[in-house]
C-alpha cells in the first residue's frame, strides 16, 4: 500500500524517560496549530497512540513530539527511534486548534510532559500581544526542559518543582496562586498536564472566575471520532476529545470520569510492559548489553523508581 515515509530528523533526550522527536512532515508542519495532536504507530504491529504536537517548524517542514517513556510503546520508541529511522504511521493534525483568544493577560500552565504542548500556545499568545505568565511544573531539576524557550516568549516565568531543586517548591497550583495574587487582572488560564494537575488548576482558578482551558488526554484509537473511546463528560454533555476537543472548559470537565477512564487498560498495559521488558532483558544479554549497562549506570535510582511507578495519565497523550 502506498504510504509516505515519516522520517525522524532530530532526537533529544531531556532525561532518562523524556525524549523529543522531530519528524519530517512538511504538509503537517504547515497545517498544525497550537493544541492539536497526532496519532503515531511506531511499527506495523504497533498500537495507535495520540501525542500532542509540541512544536512545528514550517520552514524546516517538521513537527516535534515530546514523549515520556511509560508504557510499552513509548519505551520501545525510546529504544528504536533515532535520527534517520522512520515511523510506520503519523496522522494529523487532529483536534480543533486551541482558539488563541485576544486575552490581555494569560496564565500558561504546563505540568510534566504538558510543558511541551503549552509552549506553542504561550508563543501564540505572545505573538497576539498578550502579557504571558508561564507556570511550569517538574518533578525535579533534572527533568526540566525548554525553560530557555519559555523565557523567550513569557513575560514572567514561574518554575515549580516537587522537591524544590529549582524555582519554588511545590505544585503548579502554588505557582498559580502566587501569579493570581500578583496579577488580579488575569483574563485566561490555559493548563496542560496530567488530569490531576489540570483538575488542581481548574480548582485554583474557579474562585477567581478566571476562564480556564484544559487539554484532555483520554485513550483513543482512530482519533477521527469513529470509536468513541475518548468520550469525556463536559458538564451534562458527552463529547469526543478527538473531534470536539481536545480543549475544553476546565470548570466543566468531569475529571473523576476522565481519570477512571484512563485506567481502562491498566492491567493490559502492565502485562505488555512486563512482557516487553522481559524480551528486552533477554535481548540485552546479547546485543544490547553494552547499551543497557551504559544507560543503567547513568540513570541510577531515581528513574528506576519512576519506571516502577508509571503514571498512567502520562502515556495517554504526552500529557
Amino acid at each position: 500500500m502506498s504510504q509516505s515515509v515519516f522520517e525522524i530528523v532530530a532526537r533529544e533526550d531531556f532525561s532518562d524517560v523524556t525524549y523529543l522527536l522531530e519528524i519530517r512532515h512538511p504538509l503537517m508542519a504547515r497545517a498544525a496549530r497550537a493544541g492539536q495532536f497526532v496519532i503515531v504507530m511506531s511499527h506495523e504491529h504497533g498500537e495507535r497512540i495520540p501525542l500532542t504536537i509540541a512544536d512545528f517548524d514550517r520552514d524546516k517542514g517538521t513537527i516535534t513530539l515530546v514523549i515520556q517513556a511509560v508504557g510499552k510503546t513509548t519505551k520501545e520508541m525510546q529504544q528504536r527511534c533515532h535520527v534517520g529511522s522512520t515511523l510506520h504511521a503519523v496522522v494529523g493534525p487532529m483536534g480543533i486548534p486551541s482558539p488563541v483568544s485576544g486575552a490581555k493577560k494569560v496564565l500558561c500552565v504546563g505540568g510534566g510532559l504538558g510543558v511541551a504542548p503549552i509552549y506553542p500556545q504561550a508563543r501564540a499568545f505572545k505573538e497576539n500581544g498578550a502579557y504571558v505568565i508561564g507556570v511550569l511544573g517538574f518533578r525535579s531539576k533534572e527533568l526540566m526542559f525548554w525553560t530557555d524557550r519559555f523565557n523567550a516568549c513569557c513575560d514572567e516565568l514561574i518554575v515549580c518543582t516537587d522537591d524544590g531543586s529549582s524555582g519554588i517548591k511545590g505544585l503548579v497550583t502554588e505557582g498559580i496562586r502566587r501569579a493570581i495574587e500578583k496579577h488580579p487582572d488575569i483574563d485566561e488560564c490555559v493548563a496542560i498536564g496530567p488530569p490531576v494537575m489540570m483538575r488542581g488548576c481548574a480548582e485554583a482558578t474557579r474562585p477567581h472566575k478566571i476562564k480556564t482551558v484544559v487539554s484532555l488526554n483520554p485513550l483513543m484509537v482512530d482519533g477521527t471520532g469513529m470509536c468513541g473511546g475518548c468520550r469525556v463528560k463536559i458538564g451534562s454533555e458527552v463529547k469526543f476529545a478527538c473531534v470536539d476537543g481536545p480543549d475544553f472548559d476546565g470548570h466543566l470537565v468531569d475529571f473523576d470520569d476522565l481519570i477512571s477512564r484512563l485506567r481502562r487498560f491498566t492491567a493490559e498495559e502492565k502485562a505488555a510492559r512486563e512482557r516487553w521488558s522481559e524480551t528486552c532483558r533477554m535481548r540485552s544479554e546479547t546485543t544490547l548489553g553494552a547499551l543497557a549497562a551504559q544507560s543503567s549506570a547513568r540513570t541510577g535510582g531515581a528513574s528506576s523508581e519512576l519506571l516502577e511507578l508509571p503514571d498512567p495519565f502520562d502515556d495517554a497523550r504526552g500529557g
Binding site: 500500500m1 502506498s2 504510504q3 509516505s4 504538509l27 503537517m28 497545517a31 492539536q36 504511521a89 503519523v90 496522522v91 494529523g92 493534525p93 487532529m94 483536534g95 482519533g223 477521527t224
Partner: peptide, 13 residues
C-alpha cells in the same frame, strides 16, 4: 488509482 493513507482531509488540508 493512487492511495494516500495517514491523511486526515480537513485537518491536514
Amino acid at each position: 488509482v493512487k492511495f494516500e493513507c495517514n491523511t486526515l482531509v480537513g485537518r491536514l488540508f
